[in-house]
Design a protein around this nucleic acid. Structure first.
Length: 480
RNA sequence: GCUCCCAUCGUCUAGCCUGGUCUAGGACUCUGCCUUUUCACGGCAGCAACAGGGGUUCAAAUCCCCUUGGGAGUACCA
């Protein structure tokens, strides 16, 4: 096996939200680094000046942090291979491009957009492939420098060799690209800025990247990159092209499928653990087929050979379930923390003591998959209204219910007179004892009756606990 | 159009490389039951798939070919 230090990277272009698909590729790279004791690099691919922006870059970095993916080198974590923003590496790309030109492996191209478009249309109409036609490929030295001196705009194109390329992908296996698949392509735009396929190669080489784990949509790009590696006499890294995440229409996941940004899920109160867990499961499987696990376990069991070749449909239903599993196992503190951020500042929840709040989240966490769904349940604790429903009507029609109501009302009035804020478990127990013993009510009429009368609903969480969390005054108004 | 990639329950997937142990296993969803004198969690059970056609072989979900279907790429985007 290869004993050299594994170096992997996540290279987002900061042009918007941190996309969920990006989260996944970042995750795989991160885990692979941690699983192999390697290094994880964050590189910002911001050569598209029009669309790149700092806010987006920040979004990506914060997202990584939130998910627990700490990178070893990056724009804000200097390492020996920086800078880590492509916009700050422009001289480097220029230098290598000049070298390619000198070696006759690249050339200046003076063709304008309009000319290019026209030629492409023509080729298409004639049934030929619309590759670059080579107009500027063999211009003489003199002509080039003359036109350059005149200030004519020129891009730099790579001279594509006429040959097929084959490489071994760690996911797809052996992939062959026939010759003539692409024409001479641009590596430096006429404004001097490099193009993705080019700087990607230069950077991966210079940053000593050993493994490139990325989306399937880059598979075709690998051809151009392979050509470039060959041109600069560098052996390419290992590639692993992971299948894409698609929507229910089997199309690449995008904005029109609804939520695709990490922050959306964060705002929906998904846990970072759940995001990591579910994302890892789209296109990869746990060796023991477990579906619930954490980052630490992932680091232990992750291997590249468990990737799935076919695209995976993003399923919100299962994602929610995964979150629910984590919601149930997470520490009470974390939960308290999160609930504290969801509820509005003036919520009566915040007026209660620590003990109450703890009991509250412990009671409701079993019932929901998403923390935010606890909100309406907590609201109910302070809602004096009595629900109108068929179930309630039925319970109220029982002859035992008025008896229960009468008795509990007197009990609640007593508690209120004693200035008691909440009933206790022993209160509830003694009521039940009395109702059973003295009033001979038991079974369903007893429990359902108590529930309806005390909570104003014919359904809900554990009755005793629920009652103990409800203020006496609220229960009293329900009883009126 | 051309190039490349892919194809197991509705969905995520195991199995495929190294054919027999697969009357194809697990998970989500759905349904039923148990538990909880409620609800949920949990437990148990059920529904449900090897895209089609040809080969190869004693034997194919597994290997080969074709068809069909799906996806991605074909930029001075990444």
């Amino acid at each position: 096996m290869n004993t050299e230090l594994v170096r992997v990277r996540f290279a987002p272009s900061p042009t918007g939200q941190f996309h969920i698909g990006g989260v996944r590729t970042a995750l795989y790279n991160f885990i692979y680094a941690r699983a192999t004791g390697g290094v994880f690099v964050l590189r910002i691919e911001d050569t598209d000046l029009e669309r790149s922006n700092m806010e987006s870059e920040k979004l990506h970095m914060e997202g990584m942090k939130w998910l627990g993916m700490d990178y070893d080198e990056g724009p804000d974590k200097p390492g020996e291979f920086g800078p880590y923003r492509q916009s700050e590496r422009l001289e480097i790309y220029k230098k290598y491009a000049d070298e390619l030109i000198t070696k006759g492996k690249a050339f200046y191209c003076f063709c304008t957009d309009e000319e290019l478009l026209e030629k492409k249309e023509k080729a298409k109409a004639g049934g030929l492939n619309p590759n670059y036609d080579g107009t500027c490929r063999n211009l003489s030295h003199d002509e080039v420098s003359k036109r350059l001196q005149k200030g004519e705009k020129a891009a730099v194109r790579f001279k594509v060799p006429i040959k097929a390329f084959t490489f071994k992908d760690r996911v797809k296996g052996e992939v062959t690209f026939p010759e003539n698949m692409v024409g001479d392509f641009i590596i430096l735009r006429s404004n001097g800025l490099p193009v993705y396929n080019y700087c990607c190669v230069i950077d991966d080489y210079l940053m000593k990247i050993t493994h490139v784990i990325r989306g399937d949509d880059h598979l075709a790009n690998t051809l151009r990159q392979l050509m470039l590696y060959e041109a600069i006499s560098v052996s390419p890294p290992e590639f692993a092209h992971v299948s894409l995440i698609v929507g229910h229409d089997r199309q690449k996941l995008s904005k029109r499928h609804g939520a695709t940004s990490l922050n959306w899920y964060k705002d929906e109160t998904y846990f970072p653990e759940a995001v990591v867990n579910y994302m890892s499961l789209l296109g990869w499987s746990h060796p023991e087929e477990k579906s619930i696990f954490d980052l630490e376990e992932l680091k232990r069991v992750f291997t590249i050979d468990r990737f799935v070749k076919s695209p995976a449909t993003f399923d919100n239903e299962k994602f929610k379930w995964v979150n629910g599993q984590h919601l149930r196992s997470i520490s009470c503190e974390r939960l308290l923390d999160q609930i504290g951020n969801i509820l509005p500042q003036n919520h009566r929840y915040f007026e209660q003591d620590d003990e109450w709040r703890k009991n509250c989240v412990e009671l409701f966490r079993e019932k929901v998959d998403l923390s935010k769904d606890m909100w309406p349940m907590i609201d109910r604790l302070f809602d004096a209204s009595v629900e109108q429903s068929d179930g309630m009507n039925e319970i109220n029609s029982w002859e035992t219910t008025p008896v229960i109501r009468e008795y509990l009302k007197s009990e609640m009035l007593r508690l209120d007179a004693e200035n008691r804020e909440f009933p206790t478990i022993s209160d509830v127990n003694s009521w039940m004892k009395h109702l059973k013993g003295e009033l001979k009510i038991k079974g369903k009429p007893l429990f359902m009756g108590m529930r309806a009368v005390l909570t104003g609903q014919d359904h809900g969480p554990d009755l005793k606990m629920f009652v103990c969390l409800t203020p006496v005054k609220i229960i009293l108004s329900r009883l009126e």
